[in-house]
Design a protein around this nucleic acid. Structure first.
Length: 411
DNA sequence: TCTGGGGTCCTAGGACCC
DNA sequence: TCTGGGGTCCTAGGACCC
């Protein structure tokens, strides 16, 4: 039995793009980029061939095409990614039950107690890489380390198709010159603040006076110092156990900025339906509705929320609540993006409606939901319809978990 | 033809109650 | 007719992740 934990972090390389290349041999070896539908969209993932031209995640589509005119644009397909991800995660479960799915293409494994069966962590990593490559044609980068923080750092050190091991005795040397922003949890802003304190590397962060960090950052100051030292006691927590979603929301960037109330309401209705339907599928209802508006200048926006007396999850109630918030607001500019979110959630057992008409309404909604489940989103609505080009982007996000409650793929 | 969409957690300040 | 403190709930906004 080793005297420290052995954690593994697995990160699929260019996941969505790899899945697409695997599904369509004509795309193999070529620069491709996966995007959402809709007009104003950005690159979600690109193949390594495309990255060689400077194509990056988050770039506007036109910008990516400027970098790489022969770039092949593929509209993302959730179902493919969700399916592939689930099967890969199942494969990982053969090596340990301790798996924490972090996103659709990333997971941590605690293999401390698997070594008596499989030998070494490196061997598990090689087996998994080979099997994932063989079954799905996808490469991954794996990091092995004494904790989750370092395993994630390690998996980032060699891409694509890498395997990096950080042994306890190597931690100090590796962190000494490692830029702080490489640590998961230190983003752009934290980096900027730490840089202002003349802290650039993990080594410097780990040696920093804790009181100085606490004065500046409050409670997370001591956590930051630990991160700089590569200390992380957080366990690998399998997701199913306590994975209750806290909010359900959808947003969309409109194809064109809009000012007319009627236009805004159409989008709000659609968003409310998307939120309501997903909430009902999860069996949750919520008391707090948030309306999010981003204006034409991109930089100004607001989120306004309202908490109701009772929990709701029916689309028209969500819609009404969203309108009520909208009506408390002056819109100083045309609207670029709208979002509707339901939070303050309650998980409900299937309950009988108390009144006949409530029952009818609820049955009608179930019927619509089942038609939508079979034939795709937005075929059946009870309100004004948007033109088909206006359905917004087909939502795809690597942050979705394949099996978890965050999976919004159409079944 | 600029700049997506899905989440989580944290904090500060105000309302309200005892 | 001036002044407490603790607790809970709520809102707005920001940082972080993929």
């Amino acid at each position: 039995m080793p005297e420290h934990r052995i954690c593994m972090h697995i990160d699929m390389n260019a996941f969505f793009a790899s899945v697409e290349q695997q599904a369509n041999p004509e795309l193999q070896g070529k620069p491709i980029a996966v995007v959402g539908g809709g007009g104003r969209t950005v690159i979600t993932t690109s193949s390594y061939e495309a990255r060689a031209f400077g194509v990056k995640t988050g770039m506007a589509k036109w910008e990516a095409l400027r970098c790489c005119p022969q770039l092949i644009i593929v509209i993302g397909d959730n179902k493919k990614y969700t399916y592939t991800s689930s099967r890969i995660m199942e494969m990982m479960k053969e090596y340990t039950p301790l798996i924490e799915v972090f996103s659709i293409d990333e997971a941590w494994l605690d293999v401390t107690h698997s070594l008596s069966i499989f030998g070494t962590a490196e061997r598990i990593a090689y087996l998994l890489k080979a099997r994932i490559k063989e079954s799905f044609g996808i490469t991954c980068s794996i990091g092995i380390a004494p904790n989750k923080l370092l395993a994630k750092l390690a998996s980032d050190m060699q891409k694509p198709d890498g395997l990096t091991v950080i042994k306890p005795e190597d931690v100090e040397r590796i962190l000494e010159r490692m830029p702080i922003k490489e640590l998961c949890g230190i983003g752009k802003n934290m980096e900027r603040h730490l840089n202002m304190m003349s802290i650039y590397t993990c080594g410097e962060l780990g040696r920093c006076d804790e009181a100085r960090l606490t004065r500046k950052f409050g409670i997370i100051g001591s956590r930051l110092k630990q991160m700089g030292q590569g200390v992380d006691d957080s366990p690998v927590t399998p997701n199913e156990e306590d994975d209750e979603v806290k909010s359900v929301g959808h947003s969309m960037t409109l194809r064109q900025d809009v000012s007319k109330r009627g236009d805004i309401l159409k989008y709000l209705l659609q968003l409310s339906e998307m939120v309501g339907r997903r909430a009902r599928r999860y069996g949750v209802s919520g008391r707090t509705i948030t309306l999010h508006v981003r204006f034409a200048d991109f930089y100004s926006s607001f989120g306004k929320q309202n908490t109701l007396k009772s929990h709701i999850n029916q689309s028209d109630e969500i819609y009404k609540a969203a309108i009520a918030i909208l009506d408390t607001t002056e819109l100083p500019q045309p609207v670029r993006q709208l979002g509707v979110k339901l939070s303050n959630l309650k998980y409900q057992a299937e309950q009988l409606s108390l009144f006949q008409e409530m029952q009818k309404k609820s049955d009608a909604i179930k019927a619509m939901d089942s038609v939508n489940d079979r034939f795709g989103e937005f075929k059946v609505t009870f309100g004004s319809l948007l033109s088909s080009e206006d359905k917004g982007s087909h939502v795809i996000s690597p942050a979705w978990r394949p099996d978890g409650i965050r999976n919004v793929a159409v079944k």
